[in-house]
């Protein structure tokens, strides 16, 4: 623990940096994936194109994406924007499919009932379909969050900050403790964000909890 105690300030700094890299992509990715997922759920062609494109982007290894993005974005190679855009791409790629599937799983009777009561398509999407899709979307977001937190560390190979620094530094200076603590911190961070999203999802969908308790007492 000596190394940890001696470097608390560094660890705190790297953790904040790590969150700065991994959290914005989740929010941006979700905001982009919602309309795209809606589109994918509306037309067969839209679905084919978007799902395949998402699958393709998802296939690109992260290190390669970190290196290639500067060409596309015109940024410097160590600009943090590269990491944020890369992780946003992965988040969108993952969530488009999730959102489309979640919307497709909304019972058609409910959608029909809303239409029959006079909801406009946009209003129906926001007030009926989206809320009902929340549990599945949050589940997808949790997967994306855990992946993103883990993926940020790859950036350290080419010089980005974040907790991955503890791996490169620990490797080069041969401090196994630093590496181990880094792994534990990444896991803990992933677990914490995952837990927060879980709670967030529960708060957003009180009816789902009602159903759970009703189901367990029945």
């Amino acid at each position: 623990m000596n190394w940890v105690l001696a470097n608390l300030e560094l660890i705190r700094e790297l953790t904040v940096q790590h969150l700065g890299f991994s959290l914005p992509p989740l929010l941006i990715g979700l905001l982009i994936a919602l309309p795209l997922g809606w589109l994918a759920n509306r037309t067969r062609t839209g679905r084919t194109v978007l799902i395949n494109l998402a699958g393709l982007l998802f296939t690109i290894p992260s290190l390669a994406l970190f290196v290639l993005l500067p060409i596309v974005l015109g940024t410097q190679i160590l600009n943090p924007v590269n990491v944020i855009v890369a992780l946003t791409i992965y988040t969108v790629a993952l969530l488009v499919r999730t959102v489309a599937d979640a919307l497709a799983a909304v019972p058609q009777v409910v959608v029909n009932a809303a239409t029959a009561m006079g909801f406009s398509p946009l209003r129906r999407f926001l007030a009926v379909e989206l809320p009902m899709a929340v549990p599945v979307i949050v589940a997808g977001l949790r997967v994306a969050a855990v992946s993103a937190i883990s993926l940020v560390t790859v950036g350290s190979v080419i010089g980005f900050g974040g907790l991955g620094r503890m791996f490169t530094d620990g490797f080069q200076r041969d401090i196994p403790q630093e590496i181990t603590v880094g792994i534990v911190l990444v896991l803990a961070l992933a677990l914490a964000v995952d837990g927060l999203l879980l709670v967030f999802g529960r708060v957003l969908t009180p009816w789902a909890r009602l159903r759970e308790t009703a189901g367990s007492t029945a």
């Binding site: 855990v146 350290s156 991955g164 791996f167 490797f171 196994p176 990444v186 896991l187 992933a190 677990l191």
Partner: peptide, 19 residues
């Protein structure tokens, strides 16, 4: 399978390379 998603691959690589 779930744990794998959170495990930083770089961390695993350098740790095992060390050992």
């Amino acid at each position: 399978a779930n744990g794998l998603r959170a495990l930083p691959t770089l961390g695993l690589l350098v740790l095992l390379a060390g050992f």
